[in-house]
Nucleic acid binder design. Structure first.
Length: 208
DNA sequence: ACATTAAGTGATT
DNA sequence: AATCACTTAATGT
């Protein structure tokens, strides 16, 4: 199974076998919601390919992008919620077509006790998400829109493994929770600086 | 040719 | 940085 390609170097033979036995393969298409706010958490995903974007939402229904997860990652929200048997506080939307393996949370708890490598993996990814989240909060607090936008483009290009980003200014504005006009102006400035090239519904990254 | 959607711009708060 | 109002450009039918 493809699970070995992404996780083979992380986990021992035995654990890989257990993952294969317990995991349910799932494939999603770009734009699909994998999980919404309020959903109960029963499984955790191990991403095999593609990328997922994680969003939060305020009372008015406005979205805010928290971070992307990609192959080799798992959803940090699952980890904190599974302990409390809680509901999801986030929305997960497929950024691109993606494949993953869904693991029941009882299994992940069981493996926590039995496998060192698993425990390490969970702790590491939790730590990574925490760092990522701190970064976003940081730029958010100082309202550095240009920095946020820059990071957004960088992340987006990275998870899609493509220097040409297929999106509209409007969509970026929604993810970053700002207005389209602001995005247009900042992008225009970046284009003048020679960092990007703008086209309709498409942004080409020149240098990061 | 016309309607729709995306992007650019100046002015105001 | 956000909003408004308006223009221009690209695309779809």
């Amino acid at each position: 199974m493809q699970i070995e390609e992404q996780y083979g170097f992380l986990f021992e033979e035995e654990l890989l076998k257990e993952i294969e036995a317990a995991g349910v393969y799932r494939k999603v298409e770009e734009g699909d919601f994998l999980m919404d706010i309020g959903d109960p958490i029963e499984q955790m995903p191990l991403i095999i390919s593609g990328a997922i974007k994680i969003l939060s939402e305020d009372k008015e229904g406005d979205e805010l992008l928290l971070y992307f997860i990609e192959k080799g990652d798992t959803c940090a929200m699952t980890l904190s919620c599974s302990l409390q048997k809680g509901k999801s506080k986030i929305r997960a939307e497929a950024e691109s077509d993606a494949e993953m393996l869904m693991i029941p949370i009882e299994k992940m708890e069981e493996w926590m006790g039995r496998y060192r490598s698993w425990r390490q993996f969970i702790l590491d990814s939790y730590h990574e998400r925490m760092q990522e989240l701190l970064e976003t909060v940081d730029t958010l607090a100082f309202m550095n829109m240009d920095e946020r936008l820059f990071k957004y483009l960088k992340d987006k290009a990275m998870v899609n493994q493509n220097d040409v980003i297929q999106t509209t200014h409007q969509d970026i504005a929604a993810d970053l929770h700002t207005s389209r006009v602001v995005i247009s102006r900042l992008l225009k400035k970046m284009e003048h600086d020679g960092k990007i090239k703008l086209h309709r519904s498409q942004i080409q990254i020149i240098e990061l």
